[in-house]
């Protein structure tokens, strides 16, 4: 089921603060939630239908120039705790690479330019406790709108 942005926000914030507590110097987190539906018709006959729900998180932690990442579709607190631990632990034993780091603070888009890219159905936010950044995506497609759209397209073909 589609999640509220607040829920995704909270998960992202929790991950970042846990990673920080465990000793990472930088971290980025990406939380995705999407729902899609798909109906196929072949030779005027129903061929099949698919509904996809996706919920996922990717966390990358840095300790200086060391880096490691984890991802999961299980957002339970216990599982995330476990994974964040694992991520930071493996960051510690990964050798340094001078190219490993988040982008410099000045390079992040700060909202000054209006590029007319804002989509009402997608919201994004950048967390304040930099250098920890967080990005969320929540795409909501109303089932009925989607169905109408798919059948609309199909009608054109028949």
């Amino acid at each position: 089921m589609i999640k509220e942005n607040d829920y995704l926000n909270t998960i992202a914030d929790q991950c970042l603060s846990k990673a920080k507590k465990l000793g990472s110097t930088e971290a980025s987190v990406f939380v995705v939630n999407s729902v899609s539906e798909n109906v196929n018709i072949r030779n005027r006959k129903l061929d099949g239908s698919t509904r996809s729900e996706n919920l996922g998180i990717t966390l990358t932690t840095y300790i200086g120039k060391k880096k490691s990442s984890i991802s999961s579709s299980n957002l339970s607190e216990k599982n995330l705790d476990n994974l964040i631990n694992r991520c930071v632990e493996s960051t510690k034993i990964t050798p340094e690479d001078e190219l490993n780091s988040l982008a410099d603070k000045e390079l992040y888009f700060n909202g000054d330019k209006n590029l007319d890219l804002y989509d009402e159905t997608i919201s994004s936010a950048v967390s304040k406790n930099f250098p920890f950044i967080s990005i969320f995506f929540s795409i909501y497609c109303d089932d009925n709108t989607l169905r109408a759209k798919f059948f609309g397209t199909l009608n054109n073909n028949i």
Binding site: M1, D47, G48, S49, T50, S52, E53, N54, L55, G56
Partner: peptide, 19 residues
């Protein structure tokens, strides 16, 4: 020969009912 498929990574009653 018709297949209906619904998947999710949230294993809950709510999700399964929707499917």
């Amino acid at each position: 020969d018709v297949i209906g498929y619904s998947h999710s990574n949230e294993i809950s009653e709510e999700s399964l009912k929707k499917s």
